[in-house]
């Protein structure tokens, strides 16, 4: 799992979301990915109990961006003790919306023939970055000017010794688009846009100083509470 190649979407390695000792022997590990417009929850289910597991189902609580399973959890045969099954559950964003704290928190219920189990996980915001997130240049300039300075957040991305073009290409693989590039006094400045599945636009300026290993990210958005999660996404993508 994971891809370090340029232009490929960033995918984090799976982590354990539900330890077997908390779920009567059912262990669930997972990660999230987005591939050409399809969001997936990529799961490994392991039966660490002494009995067979069957009748699996999954449900999400209401969440900030309406993430919901787009299909039932399909496990075709009962899961024998010590058996593991790998599942890619397609998700959509047309579920019920309720603002969560943190914003990217997802509460999940999984049922089998033994019981119902609950866990929470955090999803990376970039699974919500849509493919048509490149803003028109004129619109970008107008929107940048229009969003008040109080809505600008700045972040440092440390230790990323990549060129402007390499960073731009990596980010584009996860639907962060470079609208314009300038070089001022030796600094590369990238103006970038992205759009979330709920239609929120995010504008960014990324500064790259040749010879300096860090990047400076400025984020402007009409919904500034998303900015720290956008920064986290940048971190994950450029370091993937």
């Amino acid at each position: 799992v994971g891809s370090g190649r340029l232009g490929q979407p960033a995918v984090a390695p799976r982590t354990v979301w539900l330890p077997a000792m908390k779920a009567k022997g059912l262990e669930i590990s997972g990660t999230f990915s987005r591939q050409v417009g399809t969001i997936s929850m990529d799961l490994l289910l392991t039966n660490k109990a002494l009995q067979v597991m069957s009748d699996f189902a999954i449900q999400f609580n209401r969440n900030s961006f309406g993430l919901a399973p787009a299909a039932p959890l399909q496990i075709h045969a009962p899961l024998a003790p010590n058996q593991t099954v790998e599942i890619s559950l397609p998700l959509n964003t047309v579920g019920s919306v309720m603002k969560m704290e943190p914003l990217n928190n997802l509460q999940v219920a999984v049922k089998n023939n033994i019981d119902v189990f609950y866990f929470s996980t955090l999803y990376p915001l970039h699974i919500l970055f849509v493919e048509d997130g490149k803003m028109e240049r004129q619109m970008f300039l107008a929107t940048w000017k229009d969003i008040p300075n109080e809505n600008e957040a700045q972040f440092q991305i440390k230790e990323c010794p990549l060129s402007a073009d390499a960073v731009s290409s990596k980010l584009q693989g996860s639907n962060i688009f470079t609208v314009a590039k300038r070089n001022v006094e030796g600094q590369d400045m990238l103006y970038q846009s992205l759009k979330l599945t709920n239609g929120i636009w995010v504008l960014a300026e990324l500064r790259i100083q040749p010879g300096s290993p860090g990047l400076m990210l400025s984020v402007k958005c009409r919904a500034p509470e998303v900015s720290p999660y956008v920064y986290q996404a940048y971190e994950t993508i450029v370091k993937n």
């Binding site: 240049r137 004129q138 300039l141 940048w144 314009a180 300038r182 001022v184 006094e185 600094q187 400045m189 103006y191 300026e205 400025s218």
Partner: peptide, 20 residues
Amino acid sequence: EMDDGLEEAFSRLAQSRTNP
């Protein structure tokens, strides 16, 4: 010519951000 205006506007934006 319109695109030249946009090019110029981005240059001004980048300049203003570097030397506010």
